[in-house]
């Protein structure tokens, strides 16, 4: 069967509309058992980046990706200090996977999307297993129901990213 070639990805550029970036970082809505995930996104030399777009995809608390009552997709943008914030549910373990949150990063100067994954602990997981610097993918507890997950695009303590 003939196959079409996927369209070339290109950078988001610096002018992604502000209103597109906002209003989708609360996945938990009316659920009371919400957690908060925050972190700083930095480039080479640790410089924080403003208006980075982060999208997440995760399972519900029972590890399901097809719950009609909980959409595991969200989007946030970093502020001038490079900080993003999501309010969501703590995902459950799913079909052989440890609890995790998938991250997709879009930004000016990133020629295509970057993907990484946040874990809650150094648990047995087939995706975490292929990463050398595992500790950089494990969120740090930051108070009750709060987790910190910094993303370093390049340079010291660089976050591991996936190619798919």
């Amino acid at each position: 069967m003939s196959r079409l070639v996927p369209t070339a990805e290109m950078t988001l550029g610096p002018f992604f509309p502000r209103e597109f970036a906002q209003g989708a970082n609360d996945l938990a809505g009316d659920f009371s058992a919400a957690i908060e995930i925050t972190g700083r996104v930095t480039e080479l030399d640790g410089k924080p980046l403003d208006n980075v777009i982060l999208e997440i995809w995760q399972a519900d608390a029972a590890g399901r990706f097809d719950n009609p009552g909980f959409s595991g997709w969200g989007r946030a943008a970093t502020d001038a200090q490079g900080v993003y914030r999501f309010r969501t549910l703590r995902p459950g373990a799913a079909q052989g996977r440890a609890p995790h949150v998938n991250f997709l990063i879009l930004y000016s100067g990133l020629m295509r999307q970057l993907q990484t994954v946040m874990f809650f602990s150094n648990a047995s997981d087939p995706v975490l297993a292929v990463v050398k610097a595992k500790d950089r993918l494990i969120a740090k507890p930051d108070g009750p129901n709060r987790y910190r997950f910094d993303i370093r695009l390049r340079g010291g303590e660089e976050t591991p990213f996936f190619d798919d």
């Binding site: 480039e43 930004y107 970057l114 340079g155």
Partner: peptide, 13 residues
């Protein structure tokens, strides 16, 4: 691009 793209190879999963 040289300040933002990872210096380490991306990992297949």
């Amino acid at each position: 691009t040289a300040r933002r793209w990872p210096s380490q190879p991306l990992v297949r999963r």
